[in-house]
Every structure is written in C-alpha cells, then in structure tokens.
Amino acid sequence: MKKIYFICTGNACRSQIAEGYAKTLMPGWEVRSAGVEVHGLNPYAVRVMAEDGFDISQQESKLIDPNYFVACDVIVTLCGDVLDKCPVIPANLTHYHWNLSDPAKTHGDDAEILTSFRKTQALIKAHIQEII
C-alpha cells in the first residue's frame, strides 16, 4: 500500500483538509497528516469539509512521525513555513509543495473567515485530484 503524508505548520486546517479528501479520493493509499507543531483541529476546517460531505471531526492534530515520514512514497508540504522546518525529505520520495496561505490567520467576521477556508479547501481538493 502506498503512503502519503500531508504536512503543514500546526496540523490544524490545511493538512487536515488534505487528509480528509485523500482518505476518500485516494483509495488504496495510507493517508496521514501532521505538523511541526500541534495547534488542534480548527473548527472552520471541520465546517467547510462538512459542507462538501466530508467528516473530519474525528481527526486529531499530530506531530510528524519520523518513522512514517521516511516510509512514505509521497510527502506533501502545504506552506513555506513547514518547508523550512520539515525534516529533510529523502531524495527517493516524491515531494509536492503547495504554498497555501493559512486560512486560520484570516481576520474578519464569520463570513470572511469561511470564504478564506473555502478558497483554501478548493485549492487542496484540486491539487489532490491532480495527484490522482
């Protein structure tokens, strides 16, 4: 079974969204996400994924597992911050870098924050469909 790892800074939204999509859209793959820090699962990520019919409410924010990291076939980094802080990615692994802004840093009312999360969510879904 092929393994894919989605990694961002706090494993709160971008990588959680990616994991949620990949678990359904990439059958036959072992899918995990992690961060260089643990920020907890962002409720807006849960909310926008539910709008698209994906339940990520039981996912947890986790730190990078070094054993899984080196056993992966594909590593996906989702922001520049994690690319700088991530362990060195072995040359034999496929690496994708999606430099996505953090929707959790959006300031404004509920509608503005949701719009930011939906934009990031759409980009992630499109990128995963490109991998497939």
Rank of each mutant, 00 (worst) to 15 (best):
C13P: 02
V82S: 06
I124Y: 08
D73H: 08
I64G: 03
R14P: 01
F69Y: 12
K125F: 07
A12F: 08
W98Q: 03
G20R: 06
V76C: 08
N11T: 01
T24K: 11
V36W: 09
R47V: 11
I131K: 05
A22G: 07
I7A: 00
K85G: 10
Y5L: 13
G28Q: 07
I132F: 15
E130N: 15
A71K: 11
G40F: 03
I124P: 06
C13Q: 03
P66L: 11
A22E: 05
E37C: 13
F54A: 13
L41S: 04
G108S: 05
S15C: 08
I4L: 01
S15Y: 06
S33C: 06
K3R: 13
L78Q: 09
L100M: 10
T77L: 11
P90T: 00
D84F: 14
N99F: 12
I132N: 12
L114M: 13
I131Q: 06
Y44T: 08
I132R: 15
D81V: 05
S15F: 08
D65M: 06
T24Q: 12
N92L: 10
A91E: 13
N92G: 10
D52H: 12
L93Q: 15
V76M: 03
S15R: 01
I128P: 01
I89D: 02
A71L: 10
V48Y: 00
L63I: 03
E60L: 14
F54P: 10
L41V: 10
E130C: 13
T9V: 05
K2M: 09
Q59H: 14
W29H: 04
E60M: 15
E60R: 15
P103N: 02
F117Y: 06
Y68M: 07
C79G: 00
I75F: 04
C72N: 09
P66Y: 08
P87T: 04
H95R: 10
V76L: 04
I4K: 03
P103E: 09
L25G: 07
E30K: 11
V88N: 07
C72R: 05
D55P: 11
